[in-house]
Design a protein around this nucleic acid. Structure first.
Lengths: 131, 131
DNA sequence: TTACAAAATGTTATATTATAACAATTTAAC
DNA sequence: GTTAAATTGTTATAATATAACATTTTGTAA
């Protein structure tokens, strides 16, 4: 795999070290000191990073998280758990789940080549805090 | 279940008779002749309709589709197939899938109360057109 | 049948998310 | 070294969504 460009690397590093997903304009704000001044510079890097599977977009949150899989393949089968209280997001890496979904065929005859699954609920911490 | 309010009914009817998901500002444009003039009026009705399960939001498209289940329960377990060529969206109503996902537990200890799944691919028509 | 609370509406302004269009520069492959 | 592809830089603007506040309608219970 090719190396990341300068902007891509800056933005990936920021996302990768963040404990929670980051939004595009929050990324922009955080990288302005590094010379990335315009939204498009951020969105272009994000697009590329998503394309090559280094990050994923959490669609329900319009936010981006680094891929947790060591392999970091192209993002064709993604699943996340999202805490509705603290907004913690975790990538689910479960082979039973991914086998089930990759092999899933509905009666509509569509050929699927990609899926994205988002689970919502309360994480352990928030459950124990009885929030 | 309570009846829909005037704005909610206007907007639901529009979405319900649309063959594809509608975006908020396209809805706004279409209901202006009925006196709904502001984005907020649309978004408030959409929020309510989603809340009571009459419509679903297709997160990856920022668009809204009427619930295909006759029951129209609260939207806690939704799955859709999306054609990446023609953008046709179909709600998947498959009890094996919903059982599997509703019962799914990951090692992270989270308690899920909701999920949303989006499959991407090519629909029958677009496959046969070899697009 | 009034009074009260909850829900819905109307309206203006603004925040947030994302892309168009065009020019210049850098990188990689030959 | 030349060239094509990718990346960057920049301005402007499109598309999606919410804040804040005032008013009206609806449901419900005294």
């Amino acid at each position: 795999m090719q190396n990341l460009s300068k902007n891509q690397q800056i933005i990936f590093d920021l996302i990768d070290k963040s404990p929670q997903p980051l939004k595009a304009y929050s990324i922009l704000f955080n990288v302005q000191k590094k010379g990335i001044k315009a939204p498009l510079q951020v969105y272009r890097a994000l697009d590329k990073l998503v394309e090559i599977g280094k990050i994923h977009k959490i669609e329900s949150r319009n936010a981006f998280i680094a891929c947790q899989n060591s392999s970091c393949q192209i993002s064709k089968a993604t699943a996340f758990s999202i805490c509705e209280n603290c907004e913690k997001v975790t990538e689910i890496n479960n082979s039973s789940l991914s086998k089930y979904l990759t092999g899933f065929k509905d009666k509509n005859g569509m050929k699927y080549n990609k899926y994205n699954l988002e689970f919502f609920g309360l994480c352990k911490k928030c459950i124990s805090k009885k929030i």
